[in-house]
């Protein structure tokens, strides 16, 4: 109870009100994030409707295996952070902290894998504006695909990076017993954020890596 009352800000009447407010605030922020990424998805849809062949060709240049592994990594990390939150709610501390570290590590490995992808694309000359050596009738509109690819994955990786830092901070605070079964709001909010990062990627994966694979 002591942590709970210490963490109650003066503008709130009780802890329930505070937790409810924080959760609603976070979900509102997530709606904002959905629209933030939504512009890129809308741009993607419009360009793909206009140039379906170029988008299929562009997608075939991406690394489907690595993309699938990255998706699996993010899904697993999402489960890990949910378990960490569960552990804290049940009064745990050490397991939760390690689960958070695991989540952050998975996020970091995602970034590393993406770095490799970027590097090989650089070598293939697939980066418009920096190094683009594609030829042929689809080379022009294919640049649109790659612009969107870098914008989407770039902004997503930025979010992953922020998430990794956030999770490490949370791991530290969990380890130092700042949270308890009664008070865990910051951890809950960080977990929600991480799930959103995961959800964005769930849509990035088929739109970037899986187009035109059958042909």
């Amino acid at each position: 109870m002591s942590t709970e009352s210490a963490m109650l800000a003066q503008q709130f009447d009780d802890a329930a009100q505070q937790r409810e407010a924080s959760a609603l605030g976070m979900w509102t922020f997530l709606a904002t994030e959905a629209l933030f990424f939504g512009v890129l998805f809308a741009g993607y849809t419009v360009c793909r409707v206009r140039f379906p062949a170029a988008f299929a060709a562009g997608s075939r240049h991406t690394d489907m295996l690595l993309g699938t592994i990255e998706t699996a990594v993010l899904l697993t990390s999402s489960c890990a952070v949910a378990l960490a939150l569960r552990d804290v709610q049940l009064g745990g501390r050490r397991v939760a902290a390690w689960l958070l570290v695991l989540t952050a590590a998975l996020g970091l490995s995602f970034l590393v894998m993406h770095g490799f992808e970027y590097y090989s694309e650089y070598r293939e000359g697939l980066i418009p504006g920096i190094r683009y050596t594609q030829q042929g009738p689809l080379a022009g509109p294919m640049q649109l695909f790659f612009c969107l690819y870098y914008f989407i994955t770039g902004f997503h990786s930025l979010h992953v990076g922020i998430g990794v830092i956030l999770l490490l901070v949370m791991a530290r605070r969990t380890w130092r017993a700042r949270f308890s079964a009664q008070y865990y709001t910051p951890l809950e909010l960080s977990a929600l954020y991480w799930h959103l990062v995961d959800i964005v990627w769930i849509f990035v994966y088929p739109l970037i890596y899986l187009v035109g694979r059958a042909g």
Binding site: A31, A34, V39
Partner: peptide, 12 residues
């Protein structure tokens, strides 16, 4: 709140 975000995205 979650649904509203997606609904607005669908409009866009």
């Amino acid at each position: 709140a979650a649904a509203v975000g997606f609904a607005w995205l669908a409009v866009l």
